[in-house]
């Protein structure tokens, strides 16, 4: 940092102060409210709520949704990034935009579309009903909605990363006699591993927190089809405010941990990327 060419110290401190104040009021304060309310009735009630069977089943369902949605989007993300970043083809921009679509779809609509397809009055409803397969108002519907809202995260992370890395290393591996899978496992995957993990963390955080879309397809059956965010709403509506915020604080803790993980990964990716750039420059 060249101080002589930068702002005077007073201005720097003022700007820093202003930025931190903005962050504090806009973002940190709401988080503090969650924890303040969660512990308003003390630690024992907090534990009681967390250990309640309905809470445990909500945790279980949330983990199941994440456990299915994240690997599915991970595989998709790698395939999509490979096609989009390493090859040039017509309609590439449209494809990239289509992948982004779930980001811009209102959560309400994300849930609604699956009701329109799988609901009793929907396209597949009568067929599913005859074969007694439950999708909406059961775990598969919740998983589908979760997959939808976290759809682009891994792909979005990988596409720019793989674009910037180019294809030189893969080509070199092929010239040296590697087959396609060897090239992928030995060259591509190590190069993108940190970016991949970063995408997975984002995907997980969002999957755990999704409310609107899941709420539409859940059916809200206690102890059966409620995820953690839905359980927060139920407790809140039971006049159990401290309980609602206790579960909310659990979700916040997960959010904070995933942010810390993300920070670490960013640092690692930064290292890997600058290494990669240096290689391409000399190569």
């Amino acid at each position: 940092m060249t101080a002589a060419r930068s702002e005077p110290a007073a201005a720097r401190w003022a700007l820093t102060g202003l930025a931190l104040l903005t962050l504090g009021v806009l973002i940190v304060l709401p988080l503090c409210t969650v924890f303040a309310e969660a512990f308003a009735k003390g630690w024992s009630l907090y534990r009681e709520v967390i250990e309640e069977p309905d809470t445990l089943s909500a945790i279980e369902l949330s983990l199941l949704a994440v456990g299915v949605a994240v690997p599915m989007n991970l595989i998709f993300g790698v395939a999509a990034a490979w096609a989009v970043a390493k090859f040039q083809f017509r309609g590439r921009n449209i494809l990239v935009t289509l992948i982004d679509i779930p980001l811009g779809v209102s959560p309400v609509v994300s849930g609604l579309i699956y009701v329109l397809v799988f609901g009793a009055q929907g396209w597949l409803g009568p067929w599913l009903n005859r074969h007694d397969i439950r999708i909406i108002f059961a775990a598969p519907g919740i998983i589908l909605a979760t997959v939808f809202v976290t759809f682009p995260f891994v792909a979005r992370e990988l596409i720019p990363l793989m674009e910037s890395q180019g294809a030189d290393e893969e080509e070199a591996a092929l010239v040296l006699g590697a087959n396609g899978w060897q090239m992928f496992w030995k060259v591509t995957l190590p190069n993108i591993s940190w970016g991949l993990l970063y995408g997975v963390v984002l995907c997980t955080a969002r999957a755990l927190g999704e409310f609107g879309a899941v709420s539409v397809v859940s059916g809200h059956i206690r102890g059966q089809t409620n995820t953690l965010p839905l359980h927060v709403e139920i407790l809140y509506n039971d006049y159990n405010y401290a309980g609602a915020f206790a579960v909310a604080s659990l979700l916040s803790v997960i959010a904070v941990i995933s942010l810390a993980l993300k920070k670490l990964l960013e640092w690692k990716t930064g290292q890997a990327e600058s290494g990669g750039l240096r290689r391409t420059e000399t190569g």
Partner: peptide
């Protein structure tokens, strides 16, 4: 790190 919090915090919360 705090910057990303709104992204990870459930919207209802």
């Amino acid at each position: 790190a705090v910057v990303d919090l709104p992204f990870a915090l459930p919207t209802a919360v």
